[in-house]
Amino acid sequence: MIDKQWSSFADAVADVFPGARILVSGFGDAGLPFGLLHALATTGVSGLTVVSNNAGTGDDGIEELIRNRQVAKLICSYPRSVDPNWFEKRYLEGSIELELVPQGTLSERIRAGGAGIAAFYVRTGVGTDFAAGKETREFHGHDWLLEQAIVADFALVRAYRCDRWGNATYRKSARNFGPTMVAAAKVSIVEAEEIVPLGTLDPEEIVTPGIYVDRVVVDAA
């Protein structure tokens, strides 16, 4: 019997190793896997590269990892926050590396990583600083930039309802990067709001088919 359920956040992230590259879902607080991130912070593992849309605010989520100096590099589209954040402190003191990526290029690089595409051309960023060091090629009379796929060792993703096969649904705009990230990591770990019996999720409504998911942990909080 296939059962991808794990009993705790701590067990589910215990094999994250120093220097691992980790995809983290979420846009602002929506869809951020707070439980998995806190468990990861507790392990103390460091040298991580985190790929996520934001750096966060406050003292939890990705901010807890950054505060603890567990993150060596952040690949991100919008690390700035209205309130002072730990990322700002670490970045200005020069202790964390930042790769700033336009948001759609970030999501497509992850999508490509999960879909077996090495690189692709986009018009986004042509003639700007984001074109630095990238191949430019003309198609149909326009310049396009070559962007490369992102793959990772782990994905930490927040979902709504999951079953033991890892089939998942999402809630509203908390879907954001989740369905894309689960496909682009060697080990994808889903934090679910609720686990339902196999067959409960309407096949027409499943957003993430379980093939992409390795571990499911229910958020007991």
């Binding site: 919008y78 759609g104 018009r123 986004t124 042509v126």
Partner: peptide, 18 residues
């Protein structure tokens, strides 16, 4: 020269180009 602020871009570059 050390940065004095955090850069952030979001989806603006994608939108402007497309």
């Amino acid at each position: 020269i050390a940065p004095t602020s955090v850069p952030a871009v979001g989806g603006a570059v994608d939108l402007a180009a497309n």
